[in-house]
Amino acid sequence: MECFSRAQDGFHRLKKRLRENSFDNLVCLVMVMPSLVGFEITRKKIFVPFWIIHLSLLTYVYGVGSLVYQAKHARVASDFIKSFVNVSILVLTVNNSYWWLTHRDLLRNVLRKANASDKMTIQAGLFVDKHQHSLSIIKRILIIFYFINLTNEFTSYLPKRAELNEKTFSMTPCVGIKPLTSSPQREVCIVLTSLQELTIVIVVLNFQTMMLLLIAHTSTMYQLLSDEIMTFNTILTNPSNYDLLKERLGVIIKRHILTLDIIKDIRVLYSIPMGINFGSNAVCMCFFFFLEPEEYFNFMPISMYCFIVFFLYCFLGQRLTNAAEVFSRAVYSCGWELMDIKEQRAISIMLLQSQKEVDLLAADLIPVNMLTFASTSQGIYKFVTVFKL
């Protein structure tokens, strides 16, 4: 009865989280899987056994398995291409694992600032419905992203990996455990391989969802700031409301400073990891088109994941840039010419800050926007077309 009661309470809490639209609730949704294995961001210390198991299996299954396959079994170009896809997955996972282990303090600080910005927006009391609607959209995107990738993993990729066919993924499964055709060696290998894939999903998928949450929420804060500062045009029609304008202006300036600080931290958090992920995703998508048609199905889950994540990076980066540009135009159009000198100076300073380009850079070099997505996709198409001729 006690176990049933706990399960029922857990179900009700999950149901409440799925209905509630708040920043704290969105963070809790992102942290569902990490909390199960002990590295949710609210903990001051990580759960060391999970990372020992994860990194050990990653080295053994993907590292040693790819190395042995390339050294002993790879014969033709397609074998090496499929094997290098596994290497890119290894690099991607190591990169995201390192991020979780080394950026916890900064990530916790960014979440605290984002939460403070969200609360200040609620306290302003303006566009509450739009705020709730925006958070609801972010929540739906998070859930859809989870659903697509987990469905992709558990219905396509993981069952194929559990078959332990060396030729399917061009990677030697469970080096040193032989023969894999008899028990218990085969069952042990299936458990090790499946456990490794599950730990990869937890680490990599939640890296992506946390990035999605932070960038999408920051874009929303920019959009709400734009709407709020445009209300100054209405306030200025009645001189008796000027004190209200000064009060709102002070709050908007504080929120804008906080938003710029969050963007600065996001750049530090994601610049290098995003650059490495860009490279690994591009390699996976490029190599996919070199496979034989009958091998497409086996690697389709990996290719879909790389494409979705690559698009998501560029879409979020473009959305943040667009939101910052809208805010800059709103500051200029807020009716500052009708304000007193003191408020005009404050608006002038905020306008100068808002006109600075707000963008994300992968590896501090590549702009993360839709132009990059289009040009990279075009480059991959041209590269593959030339080699296919």
Rank of each mutant, 00 (worst) to 15 (best):
C3P: 01
R6F: 09
H12T: 05
L14E: 09
K15H: 13
R19D: 13
C28A: 15
M33N: 09
P34K: 09
S35W: 08
E40Q: 13
T42R: 15
P49A: 06
Y62M: 06
V68A: 09
A74C: 08
R75S: 09
I81D: 01
S83N: 15
V87A: 11
S88E: 10
T93M: 07
V94F: 13
N96Q: 14
L106T: 13
R112E: 06
R112L: 10
N115T: 11
N115F: 11
A116R: 11
I122C: 13
A124C: 07
F127D: 12
K130N: 10
S134H: 08
I143V: 14
Y146D: 14
I148A: 14
E153I: 04
R161P: 02
L164C: 07
L164H: 08
N165Y: 09
E166F: 05
T172E: 09
C174S: 09
S183L: 14
E187K: 11
S194W: 01
I200D: 01
V204C: 08
F207K: 01
M211L: 15
M211E: 05
M221A: 07
L225A: 06
L225R: 02
E228I: 06
I229R: 02
L244K: 10
E247R: 11
I253M: 12
L258G: 02
D265M: 10
V268T: 15
L269D: 03
S271T: 12
P273D: 07
G279N: 05
M285F: 00
F288M: 01
F288V: 02
F290A: 06
L291T: 02
P293W: 08
E294Y: 14
E294D: 12
F299E: 00
F307E: 03
I308G: 01
E325W: 04
E337I: 15
R345T: 11
S354C: 09
I366K: 00
I366A: 00
P367K: 05
P367W: 07
V386L: 14
V386F: 12
